[in-house]
Amino acid sequence: MTDPILEVSNLSIRYPGASSEAVRGVSFTLGRERLGVVGESGSGKSTVGRALLKLLPGARITADRLRFEDLDLLALSEAEMLKVRGRRMSMILQDPKFSLNPIQRVGSQVAETCLRHFPVSRAEAKAKTLEMLAAVNIRDPERVHDLYPHEISGGMGQRVMIAMMLLADPDLVIADEPTSALDVTVRLQVLNILDGLVRDRGIGLIMISHDLNLVRNFCDRVLIMYAGRVVETLKAGEFDKAQHPYTRGLLAAQPRIGGPRKPLAVLDRRPEWTEELPA
């Protein structure tokens, strides 16, 4: 792999007052690729994503290595993180309704990101905004520019979020369930936009999702998390070769179009899945 964007080694995270760690000993490297993180709710996926942006106030984050390009994230102060977040590293969340300011037109919110990160005039920021809205396949950028968040659909909102994030030209994008709230037809459009951007701009993408279909079809590699640990890493095309009984259990539990109508396999959770892997 040529110059990794991100190197994570032995990352553990404990929330304040929690009796155990929410994330334990997670290690992975990210290049200019799409890395999926999949697992059930509570397995620690979002916690890993937020730790990379150091958005976990009060939590104890330890790691042997937490390196983003030339930066040692563990050593950065909050003031230094402010220059990294949203600029070199961005996050897309599930519901754009919570990320957009409800009383400001979407266009000016996108332009503000531009003004915050770059020395440009208002007119230049607006031009850049329209260009970005067009880049995420919004057909009528001038019109959408002037709408308020409640006037746009979920899929449109997610495109606006992607446009906003792209303006800063980040090297790493963390998408946390970016399409879970969208209809399947819209979901594909948003995924294809993300996909194209990652390929064209050489961005590293971490795609957090509970959805096996999504990660196996839209990522290059996938980490499978269970109870705060990565139990297995698979190439997306090789899910059939999954070894870990948890991964195999998840795959078998999923109903499939054209599948048999027998009762679905249910997970038989083993206590040893939560224990350390042999070194």
Binding site: E40, S41, A253
Partner: peptide, 15 residues
């Protein structure tokens, strides 16, 4: 629900 829990509920409903 998570997919593993969904499987349990769908099995229950089918039965």
């Amino acid at each position: 629900l998570d997919v593993s829990v969904q499987a349990e509920i769908l099995n229950l409903l089918a039965r």
